[in-house]
């Protein structure tokens, strides 16, 4: 029997007033400890919504989310925050805040009123890990998109959660920093026994860094399993409508998109 860190069972979710098929339709996933689960799928397929359900930012209409076999709906907000970290896809702006203070927010679940030396030391450690220590005293709003993304990842790391949910963590990063950030996540997963769920558009990054991948389309899981099982030319054709060539290099499949499939254009 496999150990399971986090699982969702038959999650169904619709936004209020949304008629038609639900945004998430019977989604069940399982995440083993110390593993990375990649979620891929076209725009609007429900990746972000699924992550929000897992962190109980929104409440599914049906189904349950179990963390260490405990129903998350029965846990307090603070308790969840100690165990699950979340990096949002969209960056919302607030009042001008320094990078240090932004990352310090990640300690909120562990803090009383004062932040002590230990907390601060942790922030510096995380900032160094992501190589953004120099930015610590700058205003968050004055950073580049990629730098902001790193700061938000730093905040999730400062949270010291057991499960980290990342929504498109590499979308604003240059190719070098994409690898850097994914390596850091990989490292964390390997060494600190953290588990991660990453919604990601880049199929090759997904292929290279995920232990398992689920491929979604219109709120349903179309395929799930090892990268080489999920990322096939057939699946990519039917989910994205894109013709792709798959190269097998080492273990992870390498995907070369060729172009849209004209004949199967849906009406």
């Amino acid at each position: 029997m496999v150990m399971i860190k986090l699982e969702t069972i038959d999650i169904v979710f619709s936004y209020d007033g949304n008629s038609g098929p639900p945004i998430l339709d019977d989604v069940s996933i399982q995440l083993a400890p110390s593993r990375i689960l990649g979620i891929v799928g076209p725009n609007g397929s429900g990746k972000s919504t699924l992550l929000k359900c897992i962190d109980r930012i929104i409440k599914p209409d049906h189904g349950s989310v179990l963390l260490d076999r405990r129903e998350i709906m029965k846990m307090g907000r603070m308790e969840i925050a100690k165990k699950i970290g979340y990096v949002q896809q969209t960056i919302s702006r607030g009042f001008p805040t320094s990078v240090f203070d932004t990352v310090l927010m990640g300690r909120r679940p562990h803090l009383s009123w004062r932040s002590d030396e230990d907390d601060e030391e942790k922030i510096w450690e995380v900032l160094r890990l992501l190589d953004i220590e120099d930015l610590a005293l700058k205003y968050f709003g004055e950073l580049s998109g990629g730098q902001q993304q790193k700061v938000l990842i730093a905040r999730a790391l400062a949270q010291e959660a057991e499960v980290i949910l990342l929504d498109e963590p590499t979308s604003n990063l240059d190719i070098m920093r994409q690898f850097e950030v994914m390596d850091i996540i990989r490292d964390l997963v390997n060494k600190k026994l953290v588990s991660a769920i990453i919604a990601i558009h880049d199929l090759n990054l997904a292929s290279r860094y995920s232990d398992k991948i689920i491929m979604m389309k219109r709120g349903k899981i179309m395929s799930a399993g090892e990268p080489s099982y999920v990322l096939t030319a057939d699946n990519i054709a039917s989910v994205y409508g894109v013709e792709a060539v798959i190269r097998k290099q080492s273990e992870a499949p390498y995907i070369i998109p060729v172009g849209p499939i004209k004949t199967t254009m849906r009406k």
Binding site: M78, I80, A81, Q88, G94, T97, M105, R108, Q159
Partner: peptide
């Protein structure tokens, strides 16, 4: 003053606040 921390977190948006444990 007791809610100072929560106010800090809330300035960056409700979703992030929730994920950081603040209702």
């Amino acid at each position: 003053l007791r809610k100072a921390w929560d106010l800090n977190v809330m300035t960056v948006g409700d979703e992030t606040a929730k994920s950081l444990g603040v209702e």
